[in-house]
Design a protein around this nucleic acid. Structure first.
Length: 476
RNA sequence: UGAGGCAUAGCGCAGUUUGGUAGCGCGCUUGGUUAGGGACCAAGAGGUCGUGGGUUCAAGUCCCGUUGCCUCAACCA
C-alpha cells in the first residue's frame, strides 16, 4: 500500500461534486490544459485523438450522404453578418470582433465566426444558379468563437472545434427531410460510437437557433441527471436564402428562392463522453473513439521472455487495426493499472511469466472491471470481440441509467421534485411561452425537447389543454 | 454581470491569525534493490510566494488596487 495515493485521491468524489470531478478529470488525464486567454483550452494529444476518431466516423457518414468537406474563412465582414436580422441579434452578445490589423483601424470590423451561415450563404448564392446545382451539401471542420461568460473545458469554451454542415435545396420538403436525416445520422453516431443514448426531436421556439424555422436537437443525460445538448440540426427555411440571395432557375424556368439547412456537433461531444461514462476511477472511453483501445501491461517484466511476448502480442493486435499500447515503462504494474484506468482505456491485458507459460492472457475491462483469461492463440479475435462487447455494454448501461430517470409529472410540484432528484421530466405543455418560462423560474429546468408522439391531457403548468409533451431538465 | 472561494517548486498543499533564514508530499535526475493492484534505500536539481502600489528596520504574511482560475446564478453548442 502506498503512503500517498495521490493520483486517485486527486479525482474528486464523483458523487460529492460532479462538476468538480469533471474539471479535475479532464486535466488530470491530460485531455486539456487551459489557454492563456480566458475561456480557451489547449487540447492535448490524448484529448485531440478522441476528436480525430470522431471526425473519421462522421466524415464516413457524411460522405455516404453526399456531403463534401470544404473550408471557409475565419473572419467574416460585419456587413455579411448583419444581413439576417434575427441571426445577428441572437449572436451579437457573444461575437468577438477584430477592429485593428496591420497597425491600423480597419474600415470595416471583422467578426470572428461564431458560426458560418453568413459567409457560406454568401458563397452559395454564387454557386447556386440552376436547379441542376441542387442539392448543394458542404461541411467544414473548423474552430468558432463565442465569447461565453463562464466556461468549462469541452462543454463551453470561448473557442471550440466543430463541424458545421450546410445544405441548399430546391424545396422546403427536401430541406426539412435533410434536417431530419442529419439528426438521424447524429443519433446513430452518438449512440453507436460514443455509447451515449440521446433523445431527439424539435426544440421550442425559445430554444431555437437564431434565424432558424425549426431546430432539432439530441439531448443526452449526464451522470448527475442533467441534460446536455449534444448536437443540433436546423431547418432554416428561406430565411438565410432570402438574406443572401440564394436563388436558382428551376426546371420550369421560374426563378425561385432556395431552402437551406445547417447542422453541427462540436468538441462538446468529448465532454459528453466524459460526463456520461466517467466514474470515481476516472475516464471511461468507448472503444470506437478511444485513442488507446487496449493497453498491454507486462508483469514481472524483467523475467526472460515477458517483454518479447508482449511485443509480439502488440504487433499482432496492431496489424489487426487495434489501437494498442505496450506500457514497458518501469513503473510498477499497480501504478500502470491505475494510470490507464484513469485514462479510460477500455481493455487492459496483463501478461506475465505464468500466463505465457500457460499460453494465456488476462484481460480486464474498464467498464465492469471484470477479468477473464483468454488463450494467446486467438488474441486478436478475443480482443476485438471484447472491445465490441464493451462498446455495446457501455451504451446499454448508459441507456438503463437514463431510462430509470425519465419520469412523468402532471404539475409544477411534480416537475420540481423530479428535476431536483436529477431526472428528465416529461410533462404536458399548452405551448405558451409563459408556462415554459414559469417552469424555468421555479425549477431551473428548461424545455429540452419535444417528446414526439406522446400525449398528455393537460398542461402541467396552467392546466389548460396540452398540445405537446415536453422533456424538462436542468442542463449544462 | 451578481454571490462566494482560491492564487507559494512540474502537480497537490502547509506557512498568513501573532511580520523575522522558503517548507512538506508526489513527480523529476543519478545510483542501487525490487516487481501479479499505485514498491524501497541513498544522494541531488528545482521557487523574483499571480501582479502593481503602500505600511515597516523587515512583508509569502498587514492595507489598497489589479489580473487570472474555480463553484453557484444568469447566458449559450
Amino acid at each position: 500500500m502506498a503512503k500517498d495515493n495521490q493520483f486517485v485521491e486527486q479525482i474528486a468524489d464523483i458523487n460529492a461534486d460532479f462538476p468538480q470531478w469533471y474539471t479535475d478529470v479532464v486535466r488530470k488525464t491530460k485531455l486539456v490544459d487551459y489557454g492563456p486567454v480566458k475561456g480557451t483550452m489547449i487540447i492535448r494529444p490524448y484529448g485531440y485523438s478522441i476528436w480525430e476518431n470522431i471526425q473519421n466516423e462522421l466524415n464516413a457518414r457524411f460522405k455516404k450522404r453526399g456531403v463534401e468537406n470544404a473550408y471557409f474563412p475565419l473572419l467574416i465582414p460585419m456587413s455579411y453578418f448583419t444581413k439576417e436580422a434575427e441571426h445577428v441579434e441572437g449572436f451579437a452578445p457573444e461575437v468577438a470582433v477584430v477592429t485593428h490589423a496591420g497597425g491600423e483601424e480597419l474600415s470595416e470590423p471583422l467578426a470572428i465566426r461564431p458560426t458560418s451561415e453568413t459567409i457560406i450563404g454568401t458563397m452559395c448564392s454564387k454557386w447556386v444558379q440552376s436547379y441542376r446545382d441542387l442539392p448543394l451539401k458542404v461541411n467544414q471542420w473548423c474552430n468558432v468563437m463565442r465569447w461565453e461568460k463562464t466556461t468549462r473545458p469541452f462543454l463551453r469554451t470561448s473557442e471550440f472545434l466543430w463541424q458545421e454542415g450546410h445544405t441548399v435545396h430546391a424545396t422546403a420538403e427536401e430541406a426539412e427531410a435533410e434536417t431530419q436525416a442529419m439528426l438521424g445520422i447524429y443519433k446513430e453516431f452518438v449512440e453507436n460510437c460514443l455509447a451515449i443514448p440521446v433523445l431527439t426531436g424539435r426544440k421550442t421556439g425559445k430554444e431555437r437557433f437564431a434565424g432558424a424555422e425549426a431546430t432539432y436537437t439530441m439531448e443526452a443525460m449526464m451522470r448527475d441527471g442533467k441534460s446536455l445538448q449534444a448536437g443540433t440540426s436546423h431547418y432554416l427555411g428561406q430565411n438565410f436564402a432570402k438574406a443572401f440571395d440564394i436563388q436558382f432557375s428551376d426546371s420550369d424556368g421560374a426563378l425561385k428562392t432556395a431552402y437551406t439547412t445547417s447542422w453541427g456537433v462540436s468538441t462538446r461531444l468529448i465532454g459528453a463522453v466524459i460526463m456520461t461514462h466517467g466514474d470515481e476511477r476516472g475516464l471511461k472511453i468507448p472503444p470506437v473513439v478511444a485513442p488507446i483501445q487496449c493497453v498491454i501491461v507486462p508483469i514481472a517484466a524483467r523475467k526472460g521472455g515477458v517483454i518479447e511476448a508482449c511485443e509480439s502480442l502488440k504487433a499482432e493486435l496492431e496489424s489487426a487495426g487495434v489501437r494498442v499500447v505496450l506500457d514497458s515503462s518501469d513503473n510498477s504494474p499497480g501504478w500502470k493499472f491505475n494510470e490507464w484506468e484513469m485514462k479510460g482505456v477500455p481493455v487492459r491485458i496483463e501478461l506475465g511469466p505464468r500466463d505465457i507459460e500457460a499460453g494465456k492472457m488476462l484481460c480486464a475491462r474498464r467498464d465492469t472491471f471484470e477479468k477473464a483469461e483468454y488463450p494467446l492463440e486467438n488474441a486478436v479475435e478475443s480482443v476485438k470481440a471484447l472491445l465490441a462487447q464493451v462498446q455495446k455494454d457501455m451504451l446499454e448501461d448508459a441507456r438503463k441509467r437514463r431510462e430509470e430517470r425519465i419520469v412523468y409529472a402532471d404539475d409544477m410540484a411534480g416537475i420540481l421534485s423530479a428535476v431536483e432528484a436529477g431526472n428528465f421530466v416529461k410533462a404536458g405543455w399548452c405551448g405558451c411561452r409563459a408556462c415554459e418560462d414559469k417552469v424555468k423560474e421555479e425549477t431551473a429546468a428548461t424545455a429540452r425537447v419535444f417528446a414526439e408522439g406522446e400525449h398528455k391531457e393537460k398542461c402541467a403548468v396552467c392546466g389548460k389543454e396540452a398540445k405537446h409533451v415536453i422533456v424538462f431538465a436542468r442542463a449544462y
